[in-house]
C-alpha cells in the first residue's frame, strides 16, 4: 500500500502519482492522510486502483473519475465526483452541493446527507444517498439513477429528462415536469441492485419513483429542428 501525506508532499505530486498508474499497475492501494479539506484530491484518475482518503475533502474530490474507487473517510466539499465516467466514489460523511454533477457513469455513494443540486445534469451516473438531499437535486437529469433513502428538498427533478429518481422519505416539492411514477417490477429489481451497491439495507418497496412527465418544450415534436 502506498501512503501519501498531502500536507507534507502536496497536491500536484499526489495527482501526478495517481495519474501515472496504468491498468496493469501493481500499486493498487493508496492511502491519503491529512487531506484537511484540500481541493481536487484524486481527480482525473484512470486506473483500477483504490484510493482511501483519511479525512474530509474540499472542492471536486474524485472528479472525472474513471475505473478507480475513491473512498473518503470524512465529508466532501462541493462537486464531489463531478463528471465521473466510471468507477466508484464513496463518502462516509456528508457531501456538499452538486455532488455527482454531470456524471456520465460509475457509482457515487454518500452515507450521510447530500446538499443542494445533488446529481444536477446527471448523464448516466448512479447516486445512492443514505440520508437526505437538498433543493434542486437531479435538475435537468438526463439519465442514470438517483436513490435517496431519506427526504428530498424543494424542486426535485426540475426539468428532468430520462433520469430515474427513487425517494424513500418525503419530497418537499417536485420541480417543473417531474411527477411520481408507477413502481413496476423492473424498477424494484433495478433499485434492489442500486441499494446493494450502495450498501443500504433499505427495502425497494419502501421507495417511490419519480421521473419526467415529458411535457416541456423539448419533448414536443413540433419544436424539433
Amino acid at each position: 500500500m502506498q501512503t501519501y501525506d498531502l500536507e507534507a508532499d502536496g497536491l500536484r505530486g499526489l495527482n501526478a502519482a495517481l495519474h501515472a498508474q496504468s491498468s496493469e499497475t501493481n500499486q493498487t492501494h493508496w492511502e491519503i492522510v491529512n487531506p484537511r479539506g484540500s481541493h481536487a484530491i484524486a481527480v482525473g484518475l484512470d486506473a483500477p486502483i483504490e484510493v482511501n482518503v483519511k479525512g474530509s475533502t474540499g472542492y471536486y474530490c474524485g472528479g472525472m473519475n474513471k475505473q478507480a474507487t475513491v473512498h473518503v473517510y470524512g465529508s466532501a466539499g462541493p462537486g464531489v465526483a463531478e463528471n465521473m465516467m466510471s468507477g466508484t466514489v464513496v463518502i462516509d460523511g456528508d457531501a456538499s452541493q452538486y455532488a455527482g454533477a454531470t456524471g456520465n457513469g460509475g457509482t457515487l455513494v454518500i452515507k450521510g446527507n447530500a446538499s443542494s443540486r445533488c446529481g444536477i445534469s446527471m448523464k448516466g451516473i448512479d447516486i445512492v444517498v443514505h440520508g437526505n438531499v437538498g433543493h434542486m437535486s437531479a435538475f435537468m437529469g438526463q439519465s442514470g439513477n438517483l436513490v435517496v433513502c431519506g427526504d428530498a428538498g424543494e424542486a426535485l427533478g426540475d426539468s428532468i429528462y430520462e433520469a430515474r429518481l427513487f425517494v424513500r422519505g418525503s419530497v418537499k416539492s417536485l420541480g417543473a415536469d417531474c411527477v411520481e411514477k408507477e413502481m413496476r417490477p423492473e424498477h424494484l429489481d433495478l433499485l434492489r441492485d442500486l441499494l446493494e451497491r450502495g450498501g443500504c439495507d433499505a427495502k425497494p418497496e419502501e421507495f417511490k419513483r419519480y421521473g419526467s412527465a415529458r411535457q416541456l418544450y423539448n419533448f414536443k415534436v413540433d419544436n424539433a429542428y
Binding site: 484537511r36 474530509s56 465529508s75
Partner: peptide, 17 residues
C-alpha cells in the same frame, strides 16, 4: 470552506454542518 476550520481545537469531534 472546511479548510478554514481544520486548525481549530477539537475540530475532529466538532459537529460540522
Amino acid at each position: 470552506e472546511y479548510r478554514a476550520l481544520v486548525n481549530l481545537p477539537g475540530i475532529e469531534d466538532a459537529r460540522v454542518w
